[in-house]
Design a protein around this nucleic acid. Structure first.
Lengths: 214, 214
DNA sequence: AATCATTTTAAACACTTGTTTAAAACGAAT
DNA sequence: ATTCGTTTTAAACAAGTGTTTAAAATGATT
């Protein structure tokens, strides 16, 4: 009974605490993604989360620390699944196909993510480079090893693994950062842009495979 | 004599005017490129240009209009030469080779340009999309036509021109936006990064040509 | 030497920023 | 009913923002 009460107490307190904390994180995440850190004021965050301004400082000490919390969350969410594909036990062609597909699907679900990452990378590179999770944004040791093995088996030509991975990432990610200009040049709607992107799965796969041929 | 005086008068006035105007533009350009619009204050610009704060308003009316002036300048500078290559009377392979080479050399000379463009594109897309010059950032009608002709001659396979141009641009430009992360992952110095980029001229060319083969 | 438009200056403006403070509200434990 | 730690609130803070103002300096023209 006492124990139950104790659990109840903590769960309720934690629940409430997480409620407002989470409200702050969620509102701030949306605003940071849409307008960026600098153009988002703490009063805007508070108003969107329907909480008092100073609660942001109460729970996160400062706007900057809230920002770092959100960076970690966004990057972690994005990079987790991708690393798993690169490290999976899959035949090379199939792995590349799945990687492209998953990465593009993830970016279609989070269309602002790439611009957010690039903005942070441009203004506060150390905020990103100090995170371990960014290592999973592209390439892994296991994948590099696999590329080398395939070369030694004579299945693919000799390539620089880092360059190859940057090629993959460039082809996958850049169009999202360039979206507004692509849409304007082609008079694309949001839907048409997504179709344009989905077409790329096949195109990118073919380019990479073609390039790998010995 | 009077005429000469008149010329002198105007040239001197214009000279002075351009001097402070140019000082403002130059200082602001550097700061906007390095830290972005939002993190650059007008007092910082004035201090760097060694002029009084209100001269910025005197010559450009507002920080925002100064920003737009600088956007036009930077984009125009970047896109001019590139368009010429795409529209030149060159054999397809040679044109692609030159385009890659010129684009990469230009970005090595202006390493902050891509991040700047992407930042503007992310926060004030209409500021860029309303400019005619952005049409020259990639693709042209003439180049699209050339690709179609080569296909009809049976020299290359059927491709979507827009997709092909986005592929080129992605492979060329994205690594500059991702520089900090590439440098961190590989422990690159600035010099090593540039070497890494220069290697890409050949790699990108091979990828694209390989993909075009019927 | 006086005039006049242009350029430059310092000061002030109104407003927003992120953060801190100290009091109030809350909610369970005694 | 009171106590006590946690959470929430409104108000104030100091610092910084872009812009405006009105006076001063400049320098060629009359």
């Amino acid at each position: 009974m006492f124990y139950l009460n104790c659990i109840d107490f903590y769960t309720i307190v934690m629940q409430n605490k997480l409620d407002t904390q989470e409200k702050i994180v969620q509102s701030a995440t949306e605003l940071f993604l849409e307008k960026g850190y600098d153009r988002t004021s703490v009063r805007e965050i508070a108003s969107k989360a329907k909480i008092n301004v100073s609660l942001m400082n109460y729970y996160f000490r400062s706007k900057e620390m809230l920002f770092e919390t959100i960076i970690n969350l966004l990057i972690g969410k994005a990079s987790g699944a991708l690393k798993d594909v690169l490290n999976a036990d899959l035949e090379l062609n199939e792995k590349i196909r799945q990687y492209i597909c998953k990465y593009i699907d993830m970016l279609i679900s989070n269309p602002l993510l790439i611009s957010f990452i690039l903005a942070v990378l441009n203004r506060n590179p150390e905020k990103l480079t100090k995170l371990k999770v960014v290592d999973n944004l592209y390439n892994t040791e296991i994948f590099t090893k696999q590329l080398n093995e395939e070369y030694e088996k004579g299945n693919i030509k000799k390539i620089n693994s880092e360059q190859f991975n940057i090629n993959m990432l460039s082809l996958i990610a850049f169009p999202f950062a360039f979206k507004h200009l692509i849409n304007k040049k082609n008079n694309f709607s949001q839907k048409e842009f997504n179709e344009f992107i989905k077409e790329r799965k096949e195109i990118i796969f073919n380019m990479l495979i073609c390039y790998l041929k010995p």
